[in-house]
Computed example of a mutant assay.
Amino acid sequence: MAMTRFQEPGFLLVRAQEGDETCRNALIKKFTPFILRVASNVSGRYVRLGSDDEASIGLIAFNEAINNFREEKGVSFLSFADTVIRRRLIDFFRKESKAQKVLPLSTFDDPSDESGEDASNRLEVHQAQETFRLENESSDRRAEIVQYDKLLRDYGLSFAELVEVSPKHEDARRRAIEVARLISETKEYSDYLKLKGSLPLKALEKEVDMSRKTLERQRKYIIAVTIVFLENLEYLKEYINKV
């Protein structure tokens, strides 16, 4: 049976953004399988509606995407929604990781404010604050690496494999990173990568100072770095930018 105009995703999206709750609910219901698929990919396990927090977060993130999507940005709605869902789930995993180490803020109150203790005590408090910050940062880094490994698996790659596929020479690494940056910043190329799971070699060969043979040889590394830029993985991106 043909889809009527009132069932089309584009129509539902416009009406939902105009405040039509019936259309919003219809749009969410229509794309619930998409939401669960993204949440499952991010979580690395099958996510079920009604029993997993990740599913609820995915639905909330999709609703947020409806509110914030702007067509003029040059990104399709589903690509935008995919990004919002992934980022909200990453935030969730980071908060869950931090919750294991949360201490009351009173732990870090300056004792000199009440007891008049000397500078050595204030220094001890400062050191405790710094240790707490570093522990949380370390936890965030671990969570990001776990998330990255799951993203890599969508492309048939693994985190452990990156050491082997990384170009050995610094200049070669730098050129490969610039190609990855170009892909992440060019909608046509990034959409191709997401859809096909491979590099748009023909187009890249005309635009970058790198032979097709080299692009093919460094394919895995370029894809891996592109994922870092596309998903805005802050710690890994910081490391890559240093290169």
Results as ranks from 00 to 15, higher is better:
P9I: 00
S166V: 08
S211I: 06
V243D: 11
L152K: 06
F31P: 03
L204K: 12
C23V: 02
I177D: 00
E96S: 09
F6D: 07
V179F: 08
V225R: 00
I227D: 01
M210G: 04
R70K: 14
A128P: 04
P200T: 05
F77K: 06
F31V: 05
S166P: 02
M210V: 02
F6P: 00
Q129D: 06
Y189G: 05
N68G: 09
T107S: 15
L78C: 02
S158R: 15
V163T: 12
R212G: 06
P104L: 09
S158Y: 12
Q127K: 14
N121C: 14
V84E: 00
V75E: 12
I145M: 11
L89K: 02
L49R: 07
E114K: 14
P200M: 04
A2R: 13
S198R: 09
Q100V: 11
A55R: 13
K168D: 09
Y155W: 07
L13S: 09
Q100C: 07
R15G: 01
Y192T: 05
M3F: 09
L36D: 04
V38A: 07
N67Q: 05
K187G: 12
D109T: 07
E71F: 13
A65M: 05
L182N: 05
R48C: 06
G44W: 04
N232I: 02
R45I: 06
E64H: 09
L152W: 02
A55C: 14
P200R: 03
L105H: 05
E71C: 07
R48L: 08
C23T: 02
S51Y: 11
F159K: 15
E137V: 05
Q17M: 04
K196H: 14
E71M: 13
Y46Q: 15
S43D: 03
D154R: 15
D53R: 11
I90H: 01
N232C: 00
V102P: 01
R175F: 05
V125L: 13
K29D: 05
L199H: 03
V125D: 10
D154W: 14
D140Q: 08
E72P: 03
A224T: 03
L105K: 10
Y46K: 15
F11Q: 12
H126A: 15
